[in-house]
Design a protein around this nucleic acid. Structure first.
Lengths: 125, 125
DNA sequence: CCCTTTATCAACCTTTAAGTTGATTACAGG
DNA sequence: CCTGTAATCAACTTAAAGGTTGATAAAGGG
């Protein structure tokens, strides 16, 4: 199953400021390659490649309008990424909370943000 | 600071199946480098590098316990990633809904999943 | 004390990614 | 038509990423 490869591609696609800017722009609506390239100091060929990367990652899809190729954002693909992250984030946060419960047992004040670090048994460098 | 570079590093860090598996494991609690390396068919040095990548990305932090270096997941860093994605995902979804509202105006049935694609004005290949 | 465990440092190899320039395709409009 | 516009294809350069082996450092247990 290439569930893994899908995540590889999608996260890698977002690991580039140009591609993230393209995603941000597309969240407001479709745009052509030329429009997407305009804000950047790189060639349209380079932007075209970035779009191909986003498309291979399943984050965008292309249509056709004469010689233009409008690019569209796929929100569902973004949702799959947050789903992956949240699965582990929530698990970790639940664990923190259980730890804080134990460590603050019998006390009244709620632990401050980031308390888990300072309350850890191990020492920092 | 450089918001962009932080996202670069964090997304790039998750764009690797080994590092994602490490994150998944750490969501259940801290682990040593040796423990983290055990499931993989690569050397501990390679895993150590992966952990350095995750640490530079701010996704994990290390403590010290004798000659061991337990690694801990930073859930807040994961939260920053979902925050970035959701910002644009929600914007795009809101736009879809407005489009569907227009295109289904006066009709009673709710649009099916993925309707935005099929209802687009442009044609697919 | 030494020796074993745990992990990092260092040098190197190979593959891939981002960018460039130059040529080519596809389509619309005068 | 044929000209201009929009975008992709192709070949190449450079830099970085992921892996390896081998050596080194730091800390405890016998």
């Amino acid at each position: 199953m290439d569930q893994d490869e899908a995540l590889d591609g999608a996260f890698a696609a977002l690991a580039d400021p140009v591609r993230r800017a393209i995603v941000a722009r597309l969240s407001r609506g479709p745009a052509t390659v030329g429009e997407l390239a305009e804000p950047f100091a790189i060639t349209m060929q380079a932007v075209s490649k970035h779009i191909s990367v986003l498309e291979s990652a399943g984050l965008v899809w292309r249509t056709r309008d004469a010689q233009r190729r409008p690019v569209h954002l796929d929100a569902a693909a973004l949702e799959r990424l947050t789903a992956w992250i949240d699965r582990y984030r929530l698990e970790a946060e639940a664990r923190y909370r259980r730890l804080d419960d134990v460590l603050t047992a019998g006390h009244s004040s709620a632990p401050p943000e980031g308390a888990h670090r300072k309350r850890s048994k191990e020492q920092e460098p």
